[in-house]
Design a protein around this nucleic acid. Sequence first.
DNA 1: CAAAACTTTCAGAAACTATTGAAAGTTACG
DNA 2: CGTAACTTTCAATAGTTTCTGAAAGTTTTG
Lengths: 168, 168
Amino acid sequence: MKLDQAKQEFLQLWGTLGSQWGINRTMAQIHALLLIAPESLSAEDVMAELAISRGNANMNLRELMNWNLVYKELKMGERREYFRAEKDIWEVAKRVIQERRRREIQPVKESLKDLVDLDRPKESDESKEFVKVVGDIGKLVNKLDNTADLALKADQNWFFNKLIQIMK
Amino acid sequence: MKLDQAKQEFLQLWGTLGSQWGINRTMAQIHALLLIAPESLSAEDVMAELAISRGNANMNLRELMNWNLVYKELKMGERREYFRAEKDIWEVAKRVIQERRRREIQPVKESLKDLVDLDRPKESDESKEFVKVVGDIGKLVNKLDNTADLALKADQNWFFNKLIQIMK
DNA sequence: CAAAACTTTCAGAAACTATTGAAAGTTACG
DNA sequence: CGTAACTTTCAATAGTTTCTGAAAGTTTTG
């Protein structure tokens, strides 16, 4: 396969994958573009490569910076801002996990905790079932969240090596 | 909190969480409704509780059955079909993982494999960077996928107990 | 300070996704 | 069979999200 074709397919792939997991297609594509760029790119470069508008590029670059996946780089003697992506993939994964935990999992944990705190619990079949299922979900979410926390603190190799070890 | 209010909030919460992770809001809400229902529900029940149309209820119930999260239940002497959700939350999690692997991760793995197979690799900085980053992503996806595979084969308690053990 | 070079914002437009509901299809049973 | 009781489909519509691009804002520099 030719590089240009492979690049296009990768941008496409990353965009599709993003939208399947709740991340805006364009944001994912800009991320992909910066990941494979050997040098940092300007907003103009991003606009040209993906054929998107100035506003769209700006908004999504800002959002990628909020996710700590991309940062601005200023070149000496140049007015223009350049953007560079974090390239260490384990680091990228950790930052995505971190953001989703913070934005989505923490609120869910708190809501679930409140929900099982019913006025007259276990009175009816309905209450019993509700408390049981919601309680179970809460427990699983906590376990997964704790695992994510460990992964965040861990070195990639250590984490997966340990995982493989225990599976023997 | 009153049960009815808690129910409403749970339906809301599950719907929102679903849409953040790429799952249609209504499908997630129907799933939530069936999860907390002590008895199986008919399409009519679902339509009434969520105030949605017949077509919408039907389509999303069918999709939940495709995900193996819900199944039909026929009551003796009754024409009407009833729907019941899998209530074992670890089982639910495993089925979601299984489906997302099958539908999304496998295709990504194959595409990534093809993409690094360039015509004249490592000729330019651009190729080098591309092959490195895409290769790294492929390796990480494989590791995560293997971990998911292990989780699928495992018993919940065994899996998390092992995980806790190694973290000591 | 003023003009140039660039970035950010935001209201409207476009694109995409989900939903409705009436019609068509299916099945059970007298 | 034929009809009643239900389920499924699908074209039209509604709703939501994303994108555009012109205008406003900001910073740098002569």
